[in-house]
Design a protein around this nucleic acid. Sequence first.
DNA 1: CTGAAAGCGCTTACAG
DNA 2: CTGAAAGCGCTTACAG
Lengths: 352, 352
Amino acid sequence: MTMPTSPDADKAITIIDVARIAGVSIKTVSRVINRETGVGADTRTHVENVIRELDYRPNASARALSSHRKYLIGMIVASIGQFEYVGQLQAGVTESCLRAGYHLTVESPPPEGEARRAWLARLQSRRAFDGLVISPPLSDDEELIDFLINANIPIVRIAPADKSNLTPYVFTDDYEASYQITSRICELGHRLIAMIEGPEDHVSARERRRGFNDAMRNHGLIPRDTMRVRGDYGGISGFECTEALLSLTPRPTAIVAANDLMAIGALAAISKHGLRAPEDISVVGFDDIPAASACWPPLTTVRQPIDKLGELASDLLIAGIGDPRHRTDARSAFHPCEIIVRTSLGPPLVRS
Amino acid sequence: MTMPTSPDADKAITIIDVARIAGVSIKTVSRVINRETGVGADTRTHVENVIRELDYRPNASARALSSHRKYLIGMIVASIGQFEYVGQLQAGVTESCLRAGYHLTVESPPPEGEARRAWLARLQSRRAFDGLVISPPLSDDEELIDFLINANIPIVRIAPADKSNLTPYVFTDDYEASYQITSRICELGHRLIAMIEGPEDHVSARERRRGFNDAMRNHGLIPRDTMRVRGDYGGISGFECTEALLSLTPRPTAIVAANDLMAIGALAAISKHGLRAPEDISVVGFDDIPAASACWPPLTTVRQPIDKLGELASDLLIAGIGDPRHRTDARSAFHPCEIIVRTSLGPPLVRS
DNA sequence: CTGAAAGCGCTTACAG
DNA sequence: CTGAAAGCGCTTACAG
């Protein structure tokens, strides 16, 4: 009835076409598609060939309807498109989903009230997603996590503080990364080392502080209270914290900022006060964001493969969804971190 | 047969339940859900109430299967999680999708070869997505766009250079933004104004250059060739370009960088060479990225509501998919831009 | 190892 | 304005 404006009239081929041409039942084709056991080797090969020749791709909606699976996983973030971290995570999760034939949707929960209740309700009973990857800081939001566990929806938490085996989770070794870079600073001869901590509700901030503390202690240093300031991971807070630090006597000779944005803020404050890095004060950060190599001096920082972390989380999730027998054990570590040496860190001037 | 480990045994309620309880046929319920005409006002209200009481939500897979729609839209980007711009776009598109009951999946095409062919094939015939939002610079990838048009899959291009009516598109007025900020610099009394241009394959870069040129000309200034340098939107290129600019005699008194990352690089070079902004040289950027307020001095820049642009694109796409009769006209502009005044721009020292 | 039947929960096409 | 029937393309549950 419609005008011939629609060149996609080529009807997609279905499992029935494949079955007819292969000379088997659709059930057998279904078994091959889903890699189920119980198909003769020859039959399997033959069906696989027909599938390839016809370029057959199963209709995801039909599978979803009859299998009660959606082939959709959700990534829950506090805020979309605002943090490098989340973007990198998403890149990794996408990679994993693509490989497994899942789609990924990124969502952030409404902060409160009716909208939030409705949003939570939609998640229940796998009506929306087959499973969820929860990114920080939501991975430690007890109310949310408890709700999801009760709703029996598969989740994998990314970098949670709570390392109990409530749910599977993945993490980077922030502690180790911080320990290493702090040790390096100590070994360069610095004694007055300040830390601009991150917000208390981020595990990464807490772990980086722990690593800092332990490295200091193991090098015989006790950080003074005045040399610990707290930022909010924003650049401006790094700037302000550093101004406070610069007014101290004696002044620190090195600053460990819990992330790059604050480190860049620190560099800005140093520059504003007519001081130079690393000659007067060394600065290091964490994350290796793009701006870290654009600022002056270029920032020595710690790079962690966040995208790989997302990939790992998604692999874990999909394995858990796919087949109970493949369920991996409840946790998984991930650590490699890499110190990116640029020029914002140097030895202290002989003085302290 | 399974152990009572599965509390989600509460069977989801279906259109049949709603129909039975409301005392109508499922077809009538369907009409109400889809806001079709041809339902008595009373009947409609009644059914709506039942739907609300039962907290009924249509099964997306079933709708998808019978309607040949997926309720899934794709956002095609060159690279996931690497640019602020893309993240903001995604936030807006997500917002729009959520409102319309669609899911969003972000993907980036394999660069070439077999993988790319397979990826393109999957897009055909709406087998994967109901429609696509194409972000720059892919929105000007002729091969890709032509393929999608031929495959008859609805697309909306974001910020394309090609403003022909091939497909619907949305854009921000980069030209206007650049014209305005450049004019401001001229009116402050600067005469030696340099521009660090962006990469030629980004429309935004070309438009920002056009706006710069026209503003200069309209203020009686002719930019010298040596005062035009080209970066790649990366911070390091901004740094290098600026070092070249600083070696000029006479030196520019103001630099317009085509994006913030390059502007931050420019600030870094200025600082390295013992100069100060804005006293010795003013710098402005575009985009207002988070680091723009963290650097020293804080960057005067132009903010454009990129998330709103994504929302607009998605609204346009969904309107086109949803009902041919609602199809909006083939293009749509979007302009508001806002100059964020911080301190990296000031009047020139009386000298030139 | 293989298959015939029923059904997932909607929409489409048709009828009145 | 309303509805009965068929069907979308798979998987599940069962049988052999």
